[in-house]
């Protein structure tokens, strides 16, 4: 499935390059050089990539209007403005903020993460090591045996949270606060216990886990 992207960038060279790069990745791209008519152009798009410094309306204003009109559309700011203030201002409405110069691979990686996190769930199952994860059906299958793996509510929550942040290391505080919705307390072992049970269900060898990897001193990670 290809997602369609609205890309607003006034610089010709960067615009042409990004346009081609994204098309090469299989996305349908609508490249506009100004923010005028962005609202109509964004119809039917999953994601909008916005530059900040544009002729006429600036990217922040366009982004805010877009988010207000279409809360479901994802917004990725792609800007040469790197100050904390700018990032904070951008992230008030945008879903991600990438600074220029950027590596094209990072751009595509971020777009993928955004699309996945937003629940634009992939029709094809996600294959991780010996597991097949059907995100739409909330189903996890063991490829070795073809059997479905049943998880408890919390276990499934934790696992899908890690999957949404594929390749990203998450600290125990981040996971705890995302799943339980309350502030993490020092020395709380709840998450560790849940992860241990989760591993027993999904890992081939829970003693040396391959799917949910422990990054010592930091947290956990699921690598694609």
């Amino acid at each position: 499935m290809t997602a369609s992207i609205l890309y607003i960038e006034d610089d010709l060279e960067i615009g042409r390059f990004v346009n081609e790069h994204l098309q090469a990745q299989g996305y349908t791209v609508n490249w506009q050089r100004t923010g005028e008519g962005a609202l109509t152009a964004a119809e039917g798009c999953r994601l909008v990539i916005l530059d900040v410094m544009l002729p006429g309306l600036d990217g922040f204003t366009i982004g805010q209007r877009l988010k207000k009109a279409m809360p479901d559309v994802l917004i990725l700011m792609l800007s040469a403005r790197t100050s904390i203030d700018d990032k904070l201002q951008g992230l008030q409405f945008a879903d991600d903020y990438l600074t220029k110069p950027f590596h094209p691979d990072e751009l595509t990686a971020r777009i993928e993460v955004l699309l996945r996190r937003s629940g634009a769930r992939l029709a094809e199952p996600l294959a991780i090591k010996h597991l097949l994860v059907y995100e739409q059906q909330n189903r996890i299958e063991n490829r070795d045996s073809g059997a479905e793996i049943m998880l408890t509510g919390k276990q499934f929550h934790i696992f899908s949270y890690l999957l949404r942040h594929l390749g990203q290391i998450l600290t125990k505080e981040q996971i705890y606060e995302a799943i339980w919705g309350e502030a993490y307390m020092d020395g709380d072992k709840t998450l560790m216990v849940h992860i241990r049970y989760l591993r027993e269900k999904i890992e081939r060898d829970p003693a040396s886990p391959k799917i949910i990897e422990t990054v010592r001193g930091i947290g956990y990670r699921v690598r694609p």
Binding site: E13, I14, A80, R81, T82, P101, P104
Partner: peptide, 21 residues
């Protein structure tokens, strides 16, 4: 500073993308 940042980074971005190509 925002303008300066923009003006300095735009060519860098172009260079970066061309290197990628």
């Amino acid at each position: 500073i925002a303008n300066l940042s923009h003006d300095l980074r735009t060519p860098l971005t172009v260079m970066n993308s061309q290197l990628y190509s």
